[in-house]
Design a protein around this nucleic acid. Structure first.
Lengths: 308, 308
DNA sequence: CTGGGCACATACCCTGAAGGTATGTCGCTG
DNA sequence: CAGCGACATACCTTCAGGGTATGTGCCCAG
């Protein structure tokens, strides 16, 4: 049996693009070899994966595609965990971080780690939340820093900070002079938000918090990626941001303290088990110390799944 | 990245055989290409998987091997579930069965199915329990018939029969004339049993049943595979077998009813969910009817995980 | 109904990666 | 320290996978 990862990618490409021609382009090969490979595979399996003219997945083809996706994921995991195993043996860490921490908490954490453990080398990787979660799951990352970052299976989490939301409006907004508002005052205004898929858990948590006051909002999701691009769009309407993010990244805008009692935004360090990984253990210890030194949390309860 | 299933198999072979030479033989290739391939892979990964002279897995190599095994399993699953999907669309079933059912229950079941549902085609596969379980898990089998057969995830089970054990001894044995014994009467005699890995659940269940009487036995595990080979070895000592198995397969030996109250041996039909698979549903219905008609069970409770 | 274009199939060629053979070198052992 | 076993190196060979040219069936416009 010569079933191969390459063939799986081919079938998936055809299924996703809906045609052999388009798939061949995506795969950077010509169409005839692609057709031939898939025909050959169908022959070996004794199963038709596609109907042709027009191109459509058969039932068995759908089953194949699902299973093949899992196989490819397992293959990626294989290289990721192997690289990670090699890294941790040499005291190198890969740490991911969300864009909102890039100019504040993440550099502080790296500086504190360099001071306390100069022997640890860190490779820092910026990514939106799904990328961070994926890295943690597959082993591409040893740890990740993010707000409302979920904790994948086999990982542990440590809350470094818990802060309040502020409403942020343009300096020319009618409320800009006020120091505080209630969410109900913002009724009817456009709630400007990141695209959900950049940070689904954060998105849902903020929206749930806002709606817990009983108000509902017309949410405008920014179709343009990039955090700075998003923050630059605040000419009308409002945003809800953790206070430190607003201070760091939107200093010119007006910050309005919320009178509504919203649950705070957790900043979490999510990391893989630190067994046999002294570098990772050092990072976690440093993060905990930093959190206490900065007074970010009331020195209280780490979350479920934390390392006690 | 050109990481490939073939390379994973290579690494696993070297890890398992403990050397490049031996691995090359097992893979039916020469040693130099194997060494080169693995060297190349290590280069692409940037990680040493083996120490050479002598050959030993590194830590990262061990991690790679584990992940690669999962990947290969996923790949096998891919072809198995695809084939199964194609089959079930055409009304063909693959049914596995254990050697002890080959001359009794399995043919009865197939005959009953052919009578009730001539449109269903069945491909029957004989295998020991781990093979049956694997087939069910990966999709290679739609159903399997066996004694003390465990129920893999996503499968359902139906108990067709529950029968008592008998002690079986050679016709010349000092107890051969007796109709019944207690297990304690057999103390000191060799308990002859199949190798555990042919049917781990069955093995453990029988042993647990025997030991539940308080007696312990010196268990002799047959190193030779094959059920007939095993049964032929009964010149001294004793075996514990389900009564029907003893009657069918060791008619010349003496069967001794046990006076100890042992839990009965279940004969189960384990099968995948029958959603969208009328042929499989037909098999299950036929099996249930057969079980009732033969009076194998008291018409009572199917097990947990059964289809009600 | 018909002609044209799009998309997949067929035919044939070509390149490179994987495998083979011959031989070198390291390291263990007696 | 000599000999052998096991992995590395060098070089050759083969064929699977990819490319180009072209055929063919299906759909749609007019």
């Amino acid at each position: 049996m010569s079933l191969d990862l390459r063939l799986m990618r081919y079938v998936i490409a055809v299924a996703e693009t809906g045609g052999f021609q388009a798939a061949a382009e995506r795969l950077h090969i010509a169409q005839p070899p692609l057709s031939r490979q898939i025909r050959q595979l169908e022959g070996e399996l004794g199963v038709a994966l596609f109907e042709r003219r027009p191109t459509r997945l058969t039932g068995a083809g759908q089953v194949f595609v699902d299973a093949a996706r899992e196989t490819l994921a397992a293959a990626e995991r294989t290289v990721a965990v192997t690289r990670r195993a090699a890294r941790t043996a040499t005291g190198t860490l890969r740490v991911g971080y969300g864009p909102t921490t890039a100019h504040s908490e993440m550099p502080l954490l790296l500086a504190a780690l360099a001071e306390a453990h100069p022997e640890v080398t860190v490779e820092a990787v910026e990514s939106w939340d799904p990328g961070l979660v994926d890295g943690l799951r597959t082993g591409g990352l040893d740890a990740a820093l993010g707000r409302h970052l979920p904790t994948p299976r086999d990982c542990r989490a440590l809350t470094l900070r818990a802060e309040e939301y502020v409403a942020v409006v343009h300096a020319g907004h009618r409320y800009a002079g006020r120091g505080a508002v209630a969410l109900r005052d913002l009724r009817g205004e456009t709630f400007r938000f990141l695209a959900r898929d950049l940070a689904p858990d954060y998105h849902d948590a903020v929206l749930a918090a806002a709606r817990s006051t009983g108000e509902d909002f017309a949410v405008w999701h920014n179709p343009v990626p990039g955090l700075r691009n998003h923050l630059g769009v605040l000419t009308d309407g409002f945003m809800l941001l953790p206070r430190s993010v607003a201070e760091h990244l939107l200093p010119a805008a007006a910050r309005l303290t919320l009178t509504d009692p919203l649950p705070p935004v957790p900043l979490r360090l999510v990391h893989r088990g630190a067994r046999d990984a002294p570098a990772l253990a050092a990072l976690v210890r440093t993060a905990r110390a930093l959190s206490a030194a900065e007074g970010w949390t009331a020195g209280t309860s780490p979350d479920a799944g934390s390392d006690a």
